[in-house]
Design a protein around this nucleic acid. Structure first.
Length: 433
DNA sequence: TATGATGATTGTTG
DNA sequence: CAACAATCATCATA
């Protein structure tokens, strides 16, 4: 009740003040009637309207003088303080609802992600760390380096845009805030504005701007995600291996057809030779094994081709080796850098040739010495005429290493199993003993 | 543009 | 965990 009375009183003040502002001191005092007299009220409103309509007719000096007079009115501070109080009471309840500042998990998520992606974190470290992590995920130290740098460049581009935009928003926010604050302070001379209200207005502005910032963050996150999927989903950007790489891989595969499972070291070597990654080598062999097994006939030609190729290479190599062993010490290791690879291959290839009937054959991959290679290749060379024929007609390769179940024999375990067709003059000197 | 080849991924298995 | 099998998505070519 007391509250109501004060508000009524204040409202009375407002109307009084209104009259003073609009009408100035020259106006006759308002009619003293209370609200019960309808005619009086109409008259009142008519006066006010008239004053408003004619306000532009007044000179600037006149208006300034009236303003000054109002500002100097002895009741003004008291009136304003009361009005401010009322505004606090009524306004707070309205704004209270939107006042509460939630922690905003969404924003936190965005912030975390931007930090993790190296967009909002410290300059170089974050970006390269994220990129490195990405590279680690795909497992590619060398061949991704180009895309890697590309990715990093794009990421830093996003980062730059993000930061400039953020800065722009911040600047705009600050400018706008100070502008509004000045405006409100200015207006507080002519209308009741409490400092609290200004504060509230500032926080509203900040909220609005932070929501814009959130949009920026969101779109930045989206951009990063798109970038990631573009650059890191290798499946999207599949490149065929170079012809040379395929050649090397095929050579290894067909020369180790009895056991096409390269060891870690072999994979690394192949990876290096083909300038691809170890996991790509693994993929390739996985695919090759499956596809070969699935349709051996289709690969027959390829097998022959590589068999011939290997034989020729081996023949050349062994020629040198033979010469070496003749001129130098018999135990001299082969001198060619890549020779050992091919020589080993030739051994395996020969195994393949010895098992045209498809019998299982197991052999050890390791332990082959140069002499055995020499022996093997002597044999190969002695059959050179035959290998030409083989190219034309009889398949040189058969799925000898495949067992009935469609799997390769486990050749890694040395076994005493000897090829049933192995004759007394066998050249299988590289079977472990 | 249809089609096969091919590198990569995913889910399963031993 | 490596290998396999199925599958996907892209590349290359007729």
């Amino acid at each position: 009740m007391d509250e109501q009375a004060r508000i009524m009183q204040a409202l009375g003040g407002v109307s009084l003040a209104g009259h003073s502002v609009q009408g100035g001191m020259a106006l006759p005092p308002p009619h003293g009637h209370d609200g019960t007299d309808g005619d009086g009220r109409k008259q009142d409103i008519g006066d006010i309207l008239h004053q408003i309509m004619t306000i532009t007719d007044q000179s600037l000096d006149e208006a300034q003088a009236k303003k000054h007079g109002l500002n100097c009115h002895r009741m003004k501070p008291a009136l304003f303080s009361v009005l401010c109080e009322i505004k606090e009471k009524t306004g707070l309840s309205i704004r209270g609802a939107q006042e509460e500042d939630s922690p905003d998990p969404q924003l936190m998520r965005l912030d975390n992600m931007l930090l993790a992606e190296g967009v909002s974190g410290p300059e170089k470290g974050g970006g390269s760390a994220a990129a490195a992590a990405a590279a680690a995920a795909t497992g590619s130290p060398t061949d991704n380096s180009i895309e890697h740098s590309d990715y990093r460049a794009k990421l830093s581009q996003i980062r730059q845009i993000y930061h400039t935009e953020l800065e722009k928003y911040e600047q705009a926010c600050n400018e706008f805030t100070t502008h509004v604050m000045n405006l409100l302070r200015e207006q507080s001379r002519t209308r009741p504005i409490s400092p609290k209200e200004i504060e509230r207005m500032v926080s509203i502005i900040h909220r609005k701007f932070s929501s814009i910032q959130m949009q920026l963050k969101q779109s930045t996150c989206e951009a990063v995600m798109i970038l990631r999927s573009r650059f890191l989903d290798a499946r999207r950007k599949r490149r065929n291996f170079s012809k040379q790489a395929t050649e090397i891989l095929n050579e290894y595969f067909y020369s180790h057809l009895s056991n096409p499972y390269p060891s870690e070291e072999a994979k690394e070597e192949l990876a290096k030779k083909c300038s691809i990654t170890v996991s790509q080598v693994s993929n390739w062999f996985g695919n090759k094994r499956i596809r070969y097994k699935k349709n051996i006939g289709k690969f027959q030609e390829e097998a022959n081709l590589y068999a011939a190729k290997t034989a020729v290479t081996a023949a050349h190599a062994v020629a040198a080796a033979v010469q070496n062993s003749q001129t130098n010490s018999p135990t001299t290791p082969n001198s060619g850098s890549s020779g050992s690879f091919n020589l080993l291959n030739s051994g395996d290839m020969f195994m393949s040739m010895q098992n045209l009937n498809g019998d299982s054959y197991q052999r050890a991959q390791v332990g082959a010495n140069v002499q055995s290679q020499v022996d093997t290749l002597r044999h190969v060379i002695s059959q050179t005429a035959g290998y030409n024929d083989a190219l034309g007609g009889n398949p040189m390769y058969s799925p000898h290493g495949l067992n009935g179940n469609g799997g390769w024999q486990d050749a890694t375990t040395p076994s005493s199993v000897i090829s049933p067709i192995e004759g007394p003059g066998s050249v299988h000197s590289d079977t472990s003993n």
